[in-house]
Design a protein around this nucleic acid. Structure first.
Length: 463
DNA sequence: ATCGGCTCGCGCAA
DNA sequence: TGCGCGAAGCCGAT
């Protein structure tokens, strides 16, 4: 927990305010639980505010739909716990309502999410000074709070022992938000009522890019997140270590969209996987390594980098290699539009891009190939990076996340080691189509993507 | 099928 | 100061 301003509690306050910026969930939310504690101290009720605006960069139908799908779950849970809920959908850019500031004026204190990238990073810098009341941020994203680390870690092997030392202390269920003064009735307006039936209509009324359709595969919400998690435990965890890099086997958790929007807490995923593994005599080590060590390494990278998504944040040797090879001839070069439309000369690469377009995420292993080839086929490294970030911002349900930026920069050498010298890449790890063929069943993947493209149905969508 | 070399730098042991 | 080893590989030799 961090207090980010000199605010004094408001004596005439009507509630304590929790502002869900990134962790859009009720269960297992350390920030919300802390807000409930403050509310109890002030003998006030607790109000949960969540907004969705149309004017953040590249806002679109896909992202809006996913976020709105989470709202009914949130409303139900909050009502059960006696916590007030104001959700506001700002449909038009001309809408002058600034609901957060209006609600904050009547709050004894504000609690929100500590988050190291995108809008929350900027808001948490700018907003506290504008408020008269205390403004707290709580890290409800990481298992080991990212602020406990003192510096940017060099690689997984440097952060791993530190995480392992802290884990026994932090791998405990989050406290529940138990309020003493229950909220009765609706939250203070303006409030937008969201039901499963009106989501499509609400989104169509928003001034956002309507050309990006909702994901074929993932619907938002805490309930959906739990369903995916349960399916993963029962059908995939035991295969994870062996088959996680084989996309056609579907052995990964598919939780990244839910982790990104906070519909599920990584802490609960870790606890649940550990418990399931113990009960069923399975080994969850490989999954926990990715969920905890690599995910938290990404948050560490974002927190301690001035620009988490810039080439200046990759190691010196890699930057130097990119510079040295900047004028190497590129045998193939594609424009951003050709990448976007999946129109390169490589059908496997095109399939990965189609997976992004249709599902809203790319399988983790193939995404590395996707990124490496964009580097190889772009005029400059800077342009390659821009293409990757832009395509994720618009199409990925797990974009705009510390993991996204870290996975993209990994393609440029971040958290990786040098390998042998070659054109364009220098000593940055290269990936070849032949390697994909050798190690994975590319034919099965191509078939699966082609089926989705032709039918508009994801055969692996959770029923 | 499997193995070693490629190459940098962190962090711990000495 | 030396040394082991690292987030997902490639390539050529055996």
């Amino acid at each position: 927990m961090n207090l980010l301003n000199q605010g004094e509690p408001n004596r005439d306050a009507s509630y304590v305010l929790y502002w869900a910026q990134m962790n859009r969930r009720v269960a297992s939310n350390h920030g919300l639980a802390y807000a409930a504690e403050l509310a109890n101290e002030h003998r006030l009720p607790l109000l949960y505010y969540e907004g969705l605006t149309c004017d953040y960069p590249k806002a679109n139908r896909r992202l809006h739909t996913f976020i709105l799908e989470g709202v009914p779950d949130t409303a139900r849970e909050l009502a059960r716990l006696g916590i007030g809920y104001t959700f506001y959908l700002r449909r038009k850019r001309s809408d002058a309502n600034n609901v957060f500031y209006r609600l904050a004026e009547k709050a004894a204190a504000v609690v929100t999410d500590d988050y190291p990238v995108f809008i929350a990073r900027e808001f948490n810098k700018r907003v506290p000074a504008k408020l008269k009341v205390p403004y707290y941020t709580v890290d409800s994203s990481c298992i080991v709070p990212m602020n406990l680390f003192e510096k940017r870690e060099y690689a997984a092997y440097t952060i791993r022992p530190k995480i392992n030392r802290w884990l026994p202390e932090f791998l405990e269920p989050a406290p529940k938000p138990k309020v003493k003064v229950r909220w009765s009735g609706p939250g203070p307006g303006p409030h937008t009522e969201v039901t499963a039936d009106n989501i499509a209509k609400l989104v169509s009324e928003c001034e956002v890019d309507q050309s990006v359709p909702p994901s074929l595969s993932y619907r938002g919400g805490a309930g959906e997140a739990q369903r995916h998690f349960k399916h993963f435990l029962e059908h995939s965890l035991r295969r994870y270590a062996r088959e996680r890099n084989e996309p056609s086997k579907h052995a990964t958790s598919s939780l990244s969209p839910y982790l990104h929007f906070g519909h599920i807490n990584a802490l609960d995923v870790a606890l649940g996987a550990r418990e399931y593994a113990a009960e069923h005599k399975l080994v969850a080590d490989e999954f926990l390594e990715e969920l905890i060590v690599r995910r938290e390494l990404a948050f560490n990278h974002a927190l301690f980098s001035d620009k988490p998504a810039a080439l200046e944040s990759v190691p010196g040797w890699a930057q130097e290699d990119l510079r040295r090879h900047a004028s190497d001839p590129r045998p193939e070069v594609y424009t951003r539009e050709e990448f976007e439309r999946a129109e390169t000369g490589d059908d496997l690469w095109n399939a990965t891009q189609k997976e992004l377009l249709l599902r809203g995420k790319i399988h983790g292993y193939y995404r590395m190939y996707w990124g490496k080839k964009i580097i190889e086929w772009s005029a400059t490294a800077e342009e390659a990076l821009e293409t990757m970030v832009d395509l994720h911002d618009r199409y990925a349900l797990d974009g705009r996340d510390p993991n996204t930026y870290t996975n993209i920069l990994w393609c440029f050498g971040l958290h990786d080691r040098p390998w042998f010298e070659r054109p364009i890449f220098g000593k940055i790890r290269y990936m070849a189509r032949s390697g994909m063929e050798r190690k994975t069943d590319t034919a099965a993947y191509l078939k699966e993507i082609a089926y989705m493209e032709q039918t508009g149905v994801d055969p692996f969508r959770l029923k």
